[in-house]
Every structure is written in C-alpha cells, then in structure tokens.
C-alpha cells in the first residue's frame, strides 16, 4: 500500500467510527488526522475529494443530488486551495525575510560596536538593548589623544528597520565632522541640518551629546529634545536632572543648541538614558524617573558597568522580560 491508500484506509476507519457513534474521542482523532494532512500539504480540495471517495464506497447508493452537490463543493474548495498555497509561499517568504533581518541586525551590531574608552580617571558603564531585532537607540564614545571622551546618545523615532537605517546616517555624519567634536552645540547643529534634509516629515531624532575633558574634569553638553539624564553630586549625595533645552533633530532647518557645563568632583556621575528607560510600563503603570534614580542609588557602590547592568535586569524583571522600547543607559563617573 502506498501513502495515499494508507491515508484512505485511515480516514475511512475514522469516519466509519464516527458514523456509528458520534463520540468526542473520534472527533479528536479526526482533528489529529487533519493536522497530519496539513503537514503533508494536502490541499482542501483533496481533503474533500478523499471524503467523497470514502463516502461512495460506504454508501454505493448515494442519491444523485447529493453526489452532484459534492462536485459543487469540490469546485468551491479549489479557491480555498489557492489561498492555502499562497499562505504556504508567504510563510516561506517570511522565513527568508527574517533571515535577511538577522543579517542586517548583525551588521548593525558591527557598526555600533564602539569600544568603551579606557581613561585613567573615568569609570564608564554602557548598556543598550533593542526591543526587537534592530535597535533604534544609538550611542557612541570617542576618545582622543588628550583623554577627552565624547559621548553621544540618540533615540530615533519608531523602531525596527527604518530607525536602524536612519542611525547609520547619523553615525556617518558624526564620523565625517571630527573637528567639531569638542563643541557639543555645533555637533548638534550640524547633525540637525543633515537629518532635516534626509528624513521623512514624520520622523525625528532626539540626541544628547557631551564631551568630558579629563584635564579639567569638566563635562560640556548639549541636547536636542532628548530625555534628560541625571547628574549625581556625590558630596551632597543628590541626583539632579541634567536639563538641556533644544529642539529635536530634523524639524527645523535653522536651530541652535545651547551648550552647558558641569565640573565633576570625585565620584560625581553623569547619567544618560533613552526614553525606553522612562517609558517602561510595568503591570502597575509607568516607571517613574524617581524609581530609576532609586535603582541607581541601590547599586551605587558598584562599578559603572555593574550599575547599568543591574538596573537593566531590574527593569526587565518589572516588565516581565518583555521590552516595549529600546533601552539604553550610560554612566560616566569620575574616579577618586
């Protein structure tokens, strides 16, 4: 017996059982059988055709109108068959796309994988996790020969592939104007021009840019509509908002950005984040900025990297391990 005959016999026995006694158990067997048929890619019209042949064997004297009605049903099922095959081919296509996205995500990782700077008097922590495969958050450190460290953190509106594409534009624009690195306001003005010309009208980017000059222990910074970070004053043991005023990138051609400055004493910290951190929603509602501060405080005795890792783990747990938005948290701490 070949597969087809086996199938026929099996279907016949299930159907006979059911006709004798309409039990739940037999119905269940029917369900299992149909699952197998789907696995073997049997089309809906083939399934009806199988039913008709079995029926004709069991009841040779089937009334003519009934027989004809089955021909009619077969014809109807052909449409479903097409839909089914289309579904199959879409599934294949989807798998193909997924593997392409995987490749793109890996490329993005390579593009982003900037080294964390090693500076004698600075303790640096950085973490960035995408909600989906591609990350719409961006951060980048650059260290120069004078031990000045510049840091950029950006959030591109939306998630997924469009955001990731936009991000490579930012990285390219920043890499191509290295002489501006020391002037946060000018960096943002320049980026704003690039972004304004190149993005969809509904899109924008928020960015915070800072420069730490370890010779004078000063942090110079400017913001383009980015979620404010925090400044930790270790002497007062207080967290303050790292406020900046500035329009998001990509909205208005001529925008200027104010530059701010903070001096860091030993153990002072600059904390930068993306709105994925403050837009976290737990089952009890939004996670407020105060709670983020409380978490950082809880781990303040650890190294900067351990702090950001621990805060991430805690937030992940609060959201039942399902990130809704990309998450980025950076800490710079002046060592004593």
């Amino acid at each position: 017996m070949d597969d087809r005959d086996l199938q026929y016999e099996k279907y016949k026995s299930i159907l006979e059982n059911y006709l004798e006694e309409q039990s739940e158990q037999t119905l269940y067997k029917g369900q299992q059988f149909s699952r197998k048929m789907i696995e073997q890619q049997i089309s809906p019209e083939e399934a009806v055709s199988l039913h008709v042949s079995v029926l004709e064997e069991l009841f040779p004297d089937l009334p003519e109108p009934l027989k004809n009605s089955y021909d009619f049903l077969l014809e109807m099922m052909i449409g479903y068959g097409f839909a089914y095959r289309e579904h199959q081919s879409l599934r294949n296509r989807q798998q193909q796309l997924e593997s392409e996205i995987e490749v793109a995500a890996n490329m993005q990782q390579t593009l982003l994988a900037g080294k964390k700077p090693e500076v004698d008097n600075l303790d640096i922590g950085a973490i960035s996790k995408p909600a989906q495969k591609m990350n719409g958050d961006y951060y980048h450190f650059v260290q120069d020969e004078n031990d000045c460290v510049s840091v950029a953190i950006a959030d591109i509106i939306g998630k997924g592939i469009p955001a990731a594409l936009c991000m490579s534009m930012i990285k390219y624009a920043m890499d191509s104007a290295p002489e501006q690195r020391m002037q946060p306001g000018a960096v943002l003005e320049n980026l704003n021009r690039v972004v304004e010309q190149n993005v969809d009208p509904n899109m924008f980017i928020t960015m915070f840019y800072g420069l730490y000059d370890s010779r004078v222990h000063s942090f110079y910074y400017a913001g383009a509509g980015h979620e404010p970070g925090f400044f930790y004053d270790s002497e007062k043991d207080q967290f303050e908002e790292l406020f900046t005023k500035g329009l998001v990138l990509g909205v208005s051609k001529k925008t200027s950005y104010r530059e701010y400055q903070r001096v860091l004493n030993g153990n002072d910290m600059v904390i930068m984040l993306s709105d994925g951190v403050t837009e976290c929603r737990s089952s009890q509602g939004f996670i407020e900025r105060d709670e983020i501060v409380a978490m950082i405080r809880k781990y303040i005795h650890l190294s900067a990297q351990e702090i950001v890792d621990s805060v991430y783990k805690e937030l992940e747990r609060l959201q039942e391990f399902e990130l809704r938005d990309d998450f980025t948290l950076l800490i710079l701490r002046r060592k004593v």
Binding site: D155, I157, G158, D200, P201, N202, M203, F204, T206, V248, G250, V251, D275, E279, D325
Partner: peptide, 15 residues
C-alpha cells in the same frame, strides 16, 4: 503618547 505620536504632529506642523 509616544514618540511616534509626536512624529505625527511634527509632520502636521511641516504640512
């Protein structure tokens, strides 16, 4: 409202 929502108003402002 999230940033995508803000984006709609940015688009509307430009328009």
């Amino acid at each position: 409202m999230d940033s995508t929502g803000l984006g709609v108003f940015v688009g509307a402002l430009k328009s």
